[in-house]
Nucleic acid binder design. Sequence first.
DNA 1: ACGGTTCTAGAACGAACGCTCTATCCGATA
DNA 2: TATCGGATAGAGCGTTCGTTCTAGAACCGT
Lengths: 200, 200
Amino acid sequence: MTKTANTAKAEVEPGTRARVVRAASLLMQRQGYAGTGIKQIAQEARATLGSVYHFFPGGKRELAVAAVQHGDEEFAEALRDALDAHDDPAEAIRALCATLADGLSDSGWTDGCPVTTTSLGTAALAPDIQTAAAEAFARWRGLVRDKLRTSGIAEADADELAHTVISTLEGAELASQVSRSKEPLEIAGRHLARLVALHR
Amino acid sequence: MTKTANTAKAEVEPGTRARVVRAASLLMQRQGYAGTGIKQIAQEARATLGSVYHFFPGGKRELAVAAVQHGDEEFAEALRDALDAHDDPAEAIRALCATLADGLSDSGWTDGCPVTTTSLGTAALAPDIQTAAAEAFARWRGLVRDKLRTSGIAEADADELAHTVISTLEGAELASQVSRSKEPLEIAGRHLARLVALHR
DNA sequence: ACGGTTCTAGAACGAACGCTCTATCCGATA
DNA sequence: TATCGGATAGAGCGTTCGTTCTAGAACCGT
């Protein structure tokens, strides 16, 4: 039994399964589910088709679910970091928007929200992908809600605000990506900060 | 020369080209660009492959651009109607969110923003699709900005608010679609209304 | 040293893809 | 009525898709 990430080497050189998931997440983030081929994923991950189907017997759909969950955890971590960086949630959210804008710009406007791009257009085709995406959204929203509540915002207000924070974050990242400009994200950051500050 | 929409019959029974564009827009809205086949579009539009390539010699990409522009005008019309329905822009936007939530729910959560789903994941592949999507966003934003300005909001504020209105609308529709719930859109409507009301 | 499990490797399959091509139909014009 | 360009029709092209399959490599406890 070869547990992943047990040896020191596994930390530096991720196992095949991890490489495949990362490649799938990255490629689907850029090209969507239907636009990304399994062979392309295998090539990008420096794995073979046999390895991919060994780790993901469910094929492309199972792989896509893992990719969405990977993107989920990735963004959740970034979100946690951003929220922990400032006591004031309004300022934390504003700074997060700036960070997102920088990342998007640095990627040449190609790397938007991994979960969104992967799951969009798969509703009828693969409900499990949609479910994974919904869970990601719910988790992110929970992180924001907890931060707002510990900052003294009433429970009902915090819950609704968290909804809009995630929605606006997502929409502004999309708008920035499409218009190839940091403006939507930066403006959204200022407006969200103002909206949050209203409830303290 | 058979000009479209000249005869009365053409009004009732749209020409082949119009049917193809509508089918392309609808299908790509649900399945994305890569997930939608030209043969599927032709079948849905009750047209043949020959007809499709007759009207769109540029192939799938040219067809996708037309589909995005169709979705652009479609939503622009809905946006105009919503903004005209109330003097108060805040109330107009709140009502629009409710309308969008209803439409999304009625479609079984499949028909989100046509422009977004079609253009996402085509950045590197087809810049012209991305351009058409950017133009759609800019047009919608212009409609909102004009409404805010004629309601007495300062030019700079109106411009920034319009950005966030479009971003949040887009993001909330996405969140509603993924979580299969009207909540994100309804909450976003209330928050946007409050944000707009702040600037009067 | 060995038997068994895990993982790697890639050839091969049927289906579907975008697109090209030729043939035919139809309505307006001469 | 003869003609001709716009529009329709679909067979067929080469390619790529997701998936399956068999064979070998690497590693394990005994």
